[in-house]
């Protein structure tokens, strides 16, 4: 495993820790989209169907378990925790997330590396992950007072896929037969969706002011 891939995984892991820290410490999920969190839980379930069938490494298995466990616990907190759920911006978080699920599933059935159940679910998870941030970005734009942890969480989540792109470029040049168009294009789309956010993130960082996306 190369350093870029490790950096990507760690950024992903830290993003989840930041979100859980926010939920645990201030017992609030204000500004966090439950729609996006549910989509991530679905992404991990569909992608990690191979967790018990294909052993890759201990690192790989542990990380999969962490991502599965944390994504479901975040959804649980936002839906059922008696204090946390009160801070959920339900009226603002109106993105119709199921409109993303069906097109991704159809696309996975049409465009995949191999027509097997596991492979289609894997491909579906890539397509869905690429667009799963959309409800969160919409909510961010609607929220007037976004706290710093939410902004950092979104930034880290975007940075993770950007680092993965560098990892794919590295692997392409160092490994024979490493060619995965579906993964690459999905990852690229995912990163591009963050373009606007990244732009305003750096602007707010440079000018040392609170991030607010223009309506």
């Amino acid at each position: 495993m190369n350093i870029l891939r490790l950096a990507g995984d760690m950024t992903h892991l830290i993003s989840v820790i930041v979100l859980l820290l926010k939920i645990h410490s201030i017992k609030s999920c204000a500004g966090i989209s439950l729609k996006t969190q549910e989509l991530y839980a679905l992404v991990f379930v569909s992608r990690y169907l191979n967790i018990f069938t294909d052993f890759i490494s201990l690192y790989n298995t542990i990380m999969k378990l962490i991502f599965l466990g944390t994504s479901f616990s975040i959804v649980w907190y936002m839906r059922y925790h008696k204090i946390v759920r009160r801070s959920y911006d339900k009226d603002q978080d109106t993105f119709r997330h199921y409109f993303l699920v069906l097109p991704c599933l159809i696309l996975a059935l049409l465009i995949n590396e191999r027509f097997t159940f596991k492979e289609i679910m894997w491909t579906f998870s890539l397509y869905l992950e690429a667009v799963a941030i959309l409800p969160q970005l919409v909510l961010l734009q609607r929220t007037k007072n976004t706290d710093n942890l939410t902004v950092q969480y979104i930034f880290l989540l975007g940075a993770y896929r950007a680092l993965y792109i560098l990892n794919w470029i590295y692997r392409y040049f160092t490994e024979p037969d490493y060619l995965h168009w579906i993964t690459w294009i999905s990852g690229l789309v995912q990163t591009i969706l963050y373009g606007d956010f990244f732009y305003y993130y750096f602007l707010s960082w440079k000018n040392n002011v609170k991030l607010q996306l223009p309506a």
């Binding site: 992903h12 999969k64 490994e175």
Partner: peptide, 10 residues
């Protein structure tokens, strides 16, 4: 069945 080389990623 051998896994595809992209499947060692997370």
């Amino acid at each position: 069945e051998a896994h595809s080389s992209s499947h060692d990623e997370l």
